[in-house]
Nucleic acid binder design. Structure first.
Length: 972
RNA sequence: GGGCGGUUAGCUCAGCGGUAGAGCAUCGGCCUUACAAGCCGGGGGUCGCAGGUUCGAAACCUGCACCGCCCACCA
C-alpha cells in the first residue's frame, strides 16, 4: 500500500488522501474468508504424488505461493466483532500486537527479522488457538532520519532544503517515501509475517495526525506541555533542537587549555582550565569553590574578558570542583549545561556566541563568522600571542554527538516546547510495580525504573520540516498564542485574522508514543479501540526502551487510563559472528533476505526462535541456520516417506481407536501430546527458544528416528497393523505440522496440503479446514500410554542404544544381524516406574522380574528391530552368561552381544574398564553422602531414599561390571 | 561516577539447589529402498577466580577479574 500525496505539501500529512485509508475499520467481517461461499470455493492445486516430491526440500519453490493464498483468504484479518473461543489468564479472548513501526526509510535488518519472527510465531499460535487476533502493521515517518535522507539526495545536486523552500521540500519527501519507502514491509511479507495488511498505518496518516494534535492540545491545557527558553542540545548540521536521548556521548581525545584572565584593576591574572576555549567569548563569570582558600580573597573581584573586554565577576559556587584544573572555572551559561545552572543561581547574563550552524555570531566580536573549530584555533593562537595561554594538556573528554548525523552537538539557548513528564513517569513506574505491565526478562524493569526516576522534561519541538507541525498559532497583530486542534480563523483576543502557525514540528517519538491507541482509531471510540486496547504484548529490542516504550507507557496511561500492553518482551540485539555490533560503517551487516535466500525462510525463522534466549544479545551463527535448513529437509523427507506408504486414491483414512493401536503408535501419540503441552507452555512464557528446541527434538529424534523406523515393520506386514500405522503417521504428521506452523509456516503448509486428503475434517470452529492453520493441536485428555508402557518404551530405547553401542564396538556392519540378549538385574522389589502388576491387572505381585519381563515384552520386538538383532532373549537374573560376548550394564539389565569371529577383546576391555571406573567413582560419591550424618539428619527423606536406591543400583552395576571384566579377561 | 548483562565442551548457546546438556564442529563405521542437508557409534567440560551459605552449589550470597552494554550537566 502506497501513501500518496499528489497535491499537497506543506503542512504535514495529506488529510484527503490519507483519510481514505484511515477509517476502513471493520472490513474484517467482509473479508472473503468469512463468507462461506467463498471459503467453499477455494481451489488449491491437487497435491503432488510422492513421485513428484523432490528428494531434497526446495524452499524457493514452495515458500511464496502460500502467502498470497493466506492473504486472499483473509486469514490475517482481524474482526473486532468476532468472539474468541479461548481466554487467557487475564480473561481476555483477544490477542493484539501493534508492530513497532520501523522507519519508513528502513530496510529489514536482523533485529527486525528476529523481532517480527517472534511476533509472528505468537500471533499465529494465538490465532490457531482461537483468540481474536490482531497484528497491526505500520511505519514511522522518522522525522530527522527521513529528512536527512532526502537532504543528502538534494546535496548531490548541490541543493539545500532552504533553496527548495518548505512546501516543495516536504512534497519531495513524500515523493521519496512513495517511491523508496516502506521496503521493509515488503520484506516482512517475504518473512511470512501474518500482519493484518488492511490496517497498515503510518504516523503521518490523517487519523494518527489528528491524535497527535489532540494529545498536544490536551497536554497543553493540562499544563503538561509548555514553552520555555533554556539551554538545549542543538545539532548544527540538522539545525534543530534534540532531546537528551538523541545525543550520544562519545569519548574523545581533547585538550585542557589553561587560560589567564586579567583582573580589571590590573593586579594580575587568574588561571582557569577549559576544554573549549572558543566559548570564552560568551563567558559571564569565573567561578571558584566557596571553601577554596586559594581564591577566598578574590571572590567578588572583577575580571576583564580578553578580546571582548566585558567585565565579569569572580563568583563562588559549590558546583566547582577545587581539585580539577586550577580550581577556577569559566562560566558560559549559554553554551554549557553546568554553567547554565550556575548562571541561573547567580543571575548571570547568557551570552550566546554562535548561530544555528555553530558559526560565531555578532557577540563573538572579532571572531564573528568563524566556524567553532576554526574559532578555537584562532583564539588559542591569539591567547598565546597575548601571553594568556599558560599551557595545554591532553585531556580525555566526552562529547555529545547527534545520533542521526554524528555532528558534535552544541548546547544552545533556545525557545522550545517541553513536556513535563515527572508525574506521568511516576504513573508508568507504578503500573510496572503493580504488575499491570511486565517486562520479560524482568531485569529490564530496573533499566526502565532507572531512567524514569531521573527523567528530565522532554524537549519535543524540532526545527525540521518533515513531521507533525505543532498546533500553536500566533496572532501577528497582538502576538496572542493559541493552541488548538484546528487553525483558528481569528485571534481570540483581538479578532485579527493574520494568524501564523508555529514553524516547528514534533519529535518523531511524540507520535510513536501514541502508537498503541492512535493506530486503533483514537480519539474515535472505534470498535477496534474497545476491542484491542490494551494490547497484549509488545516485542521490541532494548535500545528503544527509553525512546519509545517508556513514552508509550506514559502517554497510554495519560490518555487511555490504562497501560498500552500487558507484557513487554525485550529481545536480544543481534551481533555478527565475532560478537560485534552490526553497523554500516563496519560493513558487517548481514541482510536477513540473504539469509532467507541461502537457508530458506522457514529455517531462518526457526533459528531466530532458537536463538532468542532471553539474554542481552545473540551472536549470529551460520551453523545454526544450516542446522535448521537440514531440519526442514528432514521433515520434507519424512513426508516423502509417509506419502510413499499411502497407496490408492487419496481419501480420508479410517480412524483407528486408540485401544486398537500398537504400543509404538500409542507411544508416539503420547510423546506428541507431551510436546504439544511443552511447546504451548513455552510460547505462553515467551520462551521461543525452548519451544523451538522442543519441536525440533520431537520431530527429528522421536518421530523420525523412532516412530518412522518402527512403522516400517507394520507397513510391510499389511492388514490392520498397516492401517493403524498409516493412520498414526498421518495423524501425527497433521498435528505436528500444525504445532510447527508458527515457526515454519511455509513448509508446514506445503506438506500439510499434501497429506490433507488423507485427513478427516476437523471439528469445531476451525479457522479454515483447508489450511494447516486450521486449529492448534491439543493433547488428548487421557494419555494413550500407561505409565508401565512408557517405562517399557524407555527401556526399549535404552536397550537399543546399548546394543548399537556394542555393535559398533564389535565392528558389526550396520545391516548385519547380531545375537543379543538382555539379562535382568535382580532387585529387592518392583521398581517404582512400572507398578506393573496393578496396571496390567494381573497377579504378578511378588516377582519384580516377572513384572519387568511382562512390561517389556511388548516393547522387546521394537528393540530387536531397531538394533537389528537376530534374536533378543530376555534372561533371568540368575541365567548363565554366554561365552564370547561383550556386555554393558543398564539400571535394569545387562546388555549382551555376541562377538564376531576373531574379535580382539582387548578393545572391549578398555571400554568396560572405563565404565567400571566411572560407576565406581559415582558409587563412592553416593556412599559418602549416605555416610554423612549431616546428610542423614538434614536432607529431605525423599532425597535420601532416592540416593539410597541409586547407591544400590550403582553397587549392583559395579559388581556386574567387575564380573564381566573378569570373564572378559578369562575369555581373552 | 552510577547501573545492567555475560563468563558452562573447539564454536554458538540452554540449564539456574540434588548423577554436567543441545546444535554445529571433530573422530570411527555405514550410500541399511524417506532423507549423505542422512544413519549408527565415540571422544571432549575441576561450569571465569576467591571466599561464604547449605547435608549438598554450575546454580544462592559477597568480593575480584575479564568481555560487552546503558545512563550521567566529570570545566
Amino acid at each position: 500500500m502506497v501513501r500518496r500525496c499528489p497535491h499537497q505539501a506543506g503542512v504535514s500529512p495529506c488529510l484527503e488522501t490519507a483519510g481514505a485509508r484511515q477509517y476502513d475499520f471493520g472490513r474484517g467481517r467482509d473479508a472473503p474468508f468469512f463468507r462461506p461461499a467463498f471459503r467453499d470455493s477455494i481451489k488449491i492445486d491437487p497435491p503432488p504424488t510422492p513421485v513428484e516430491l523432490a528428494k531434497t526440500y526446495d524452499p524457493k519453490s514452495t515458500e511464496q505461493k502460500w502467502f498470497q493464498l493466506w492473504i486472499d483468504l483473509g486469514y490475517f484479518k482481524a474482526d473486532p466483532a468476532r468472539k474468541g473461543t479461548r481466554h487467557d489468564a487475564h480473561g481476555n479472548d483477544y490477542f493484539s500486537i501493534v508492530i513497532p513501526p520501523p522507519n519508513v526509510t528502513g530496510q529489514l535488518h536482523l533485529g527486525h527479522a528476529l523481532n517480527h519472527t517472534l511476533q509472528d510465531i505468537i500471533v499465529r499460535a494465538r490465532r490457531m488457538q482461537g483468540f481474536n487476533t490482531l497484528w497491526l502493521p505500520g511505519m514511522d515517518h522518522a522525522g530527522i532520519a527521513t529528512q536527512n535522507v532526502v537532504e543528502r539526495q538534494l546535496a548531490k545536486d548541490g541543493k539545500t532544503r532552504y533553496q527548495l523552500g518548505r512546501e516543495s521540500f516536504v512534497r519531495r519527501v513524500w515523493e521519496w517515501q512513495e517511491t523508496y519507502g516502506g521496503k521493509i514491509l515488503e520484506q516482512d511479507r517475504r518473512l511470512g509475517a501474518s500482519l493484518d495488511w488492511s490496517r497498515e498505518r503510518f504516523t503521518l496518516d490523517a487519523g494518527l495526525s489528528r491524535a497527535v494534535t489532540k494529545v498536544f492540545v490536551e497536554l497543553y491545557r493540562k499544563g503538561l506541555i509548555y514553552r520555555d527558553r533554556r539551554l538545549i542540545n542543538w545539532c548544527p548540521r540538522c539545525e534543530t533542537a534534540l532531546s537528551d536521548l538523541e545525543v550520544e556521548h562519545k569519548d574523545a581525545q581533547g585538550n585542557l587549555y589553561y587560560l589567564r584572565y586579567p583582573f580589571s584593576d590590573g593586579t594580575g591574572t587568574i588561571t582557569l582550565a577549559t576544554t573549549r576555549p572558543e566559548t570564552m567569548l560568551g563567558d559571564t563569570a569565573v567561578a571558584v569553590h566557596p571553601d577554596d582558600q586559594r581564591y577566598a580573597a578574590i571572590v567578588g573581584k572583577k575580571l576583564r574578558l580578553p578580546f571582548i573586554n566585558r567585565e565579569i565577576p569572580i563568583i563562588a559556587d559549590a558546583a566547582v570542583d577545587p581539585k580539577f584544573g586550577t580550581g577556577a572555572v569559566k562560566i558560559t551559561p549559554a553554551h554549557d549545561f553546568n554553567d547554565f545552572e550556575i548562571g541561573r543561581r547567580h543571575h548571570l547574563e547568557q551570552v550566546s556566541v554562535m548561530d544555528t550552524r555553530a558559526h560565531m555570531n555578532e557577540n563573538a566580536g572579532p571572531y564573528r563568522g568563524l566556524d567553532r573549530e576554526e574559532c578555537r584555533r584562532r583564539i588559542t593562537d591569539d591567547l598565546k600571542s597575548a601571553g594568556l595561554l599558560e599551557k595545554i594538556e591532553p585531556h580525555q573528554l566526552s562529547v555529545g554527538t547527534c545520533s542521526r548525523c554524528d555532528t558534535v552537538v552544541e548546547p544552545m539557548i533556545s525557545e522550545q516546547w517541553f513536556m513535563r513528564v515527572k508525574e506521568m513517569a511516576e504513573r508508568a513506574m507504578q503500573a510496572v510495580r503493580d504488575g499491570r505491565t511486565t517486562f520479560h526478562p524482568k531485569f529490564w524493569e530496573n533499566t526502565f525504573f532507572n531512567w524514569l526516576e531521573n527523567i528530565h522534561d522532554w524537549c519535543i519541538s524540532r526545527q525540521l520540516w518533515w513531521g507533525h507541525r505543532i498546533p500553536a498559532y500566533r496572532c501577528q497583530r497582538c502576538d496572542h498564542l493559541m493552541i488548538a486542534e484546528e487553525r483558528p480563523a481569528r485571534c481570540e483576543e483581538c479578532g485579527g485574522n493574520d494568524i501564523t502557525q508555529d514553524e516547528d514540528v514534533l519529535d518523531t517519538w511524540f507520535s510513536s508514543g501514541l502508537w498503541p491507541f492512535s493506530t486503533l482509531g483514537w480519539p474515535e471510540e472505534t470498535p477496534e479501540l474497545r476491542r484491542y486496547y490494551p494490547t497484549s504484548l509488545l516485542v521490541t529490542a532494548y535500545d528503544i526502551i527509553f525512546f519509545w516504550v517508556a513514552r508509550m507507557m506514559m502517554l497510554g496511561l495519560e490518555f487511555m487510563n490504562d497501560v498500552p500492553f500487558r507484557d513487554i518482551l525485550i529481545t536480544p540485539l543481534v551481533r555478527d559472528e565475532y560478537g560485534k555490533k552490526m553497523t554500516k560503517s563496519k560493513g558487517n551487516v548481514v541482510d536477513p533476505v540473504d539469509l532467507m535466500e541461502q537457508y530458506g525462510t522457514d529455517a531462518c525463522r526457526l533459528t531466530f526462535a532458537q536463538l532468542s534466549a532471553q539474554g542481552r544479545e545473540v551472536i549470529l551463527s551460520h551453523d545454526r541456520f544450516a542446522a535448521s535448513r537440514a531440519f526442514a529437509n528432514k521433515i520434507w523427507n519424512a513426508a516423502r516417506f509417509v506419502m510413499m506408504n499411502l497407496d490408492g486414491a487419496p481419501q480420508p483414512l479410517k480412524t483407528v481407536e486408540v485401544k486398537n493401536l500398537g504400543l509404538a503408535e500409542r507411544w508416539i501419540l503420547s510423546r506428541l501430546d507431551a510436546t504439544i503441552a511443552e511447546v504451548s507452555g513455552a510460547i505462553d512464557r515467551f520462551e521461543f527458544n525452548l519451544a523451538g528446541m522442543a519441536i525440533y527434538q520431537f520431530i527429528w529424534h522421536e518421530f523420525c528416528d523412532w516412530y518412522i523406523e518402527l512403522s516400517k515393520e507394520p507397513l510391510k506386514a499389511g492388514g490392520e497393523r498397516r492401517d493403524a500405522a498409516r493412520y498414526v503417521l498421518v495423524t501425527v504428521f497433521d498435528r505436528m505440522l500444525r504445532l510447527l506452523h508458527p515457526f515454519m509456516p511455509f513448509i508446514s503448509e506445503e506438506i500439510w496440503q499434501v497429506i490433507r486428503p488423507y485427513l478427516r475434517e476437523e471439528d469445531g470452529s476451525s479457522l479454515s479446514p483447508h489450511l494447516v492453520i486450521a486449529k492448534w493441536p491439543e493433547p488428548a485428555s487421557v494419555d494413550p500410554l500407561s505409565m508401565a508402557e512408557a517405562a517399557a518404551m524407555t527401556r526399549c530405547i535404552e536397550a537399543t542404544e546399548a546394543i548399537n553401542s556394542l555393535r559398533s564396538l564389535l565392528g558389526y556392519h550396520p545391516g548385519q544381524r547380531v545375537m543379543a540378549a538382555l539379562r535382568l538385574v535382580a532387585k529387592g522389589e518392583a521398581d517404582s516406574h512400572s507398578n506393573v502388576p496393578q496396571l496390567l491387572g494381573r497377579a504378578l505381585a511378588g516377582s519384580a522380574e516377572l513384572a519387568i519381563r511382562a512390561a517389556f515384552a511388548q516393547a522387546k520386538p521394537y528393540a530387536a528391530q531397531m538394533a537389528k538383532t537376530e534374536s533378543l532373549e530376555v534372561l533371568g537374573a540368575g541365567a548363565k552368561m554366554p561365552d564370547r560376548v561383550v556386555t554393558s550394564v543398564l539400571d535394569w539389565c545387562e546388555v549382551i552381544v555376541t562377538a564376531p569371529e576373531g574379535f580382539d577383546f582387548e578393545k572391549a576391555r578398555g571400554a568396560l574398564q572405563k565404565k567400571l571406573d566411572e560407576v565406581s567413582t559415582h558409587h563412592e560419591q553416593h556412599l559418602k553422602r549416605l555416610g554423612n550424618p549431616e546428610f542423614v539428619a538434614k536432607a529431605a527423606p525423599e532425597m535420601q531414599n532416592q540416593i539410597q536406591e541409586r547407591a544400590q543400583e550403582l553397587e549392583g552395576q559395579r559388581r556386574l561390571l567387575a564380573d564381566q571384566l573378569k570373564q572378559l579377561q578369562a575369555s581373552g
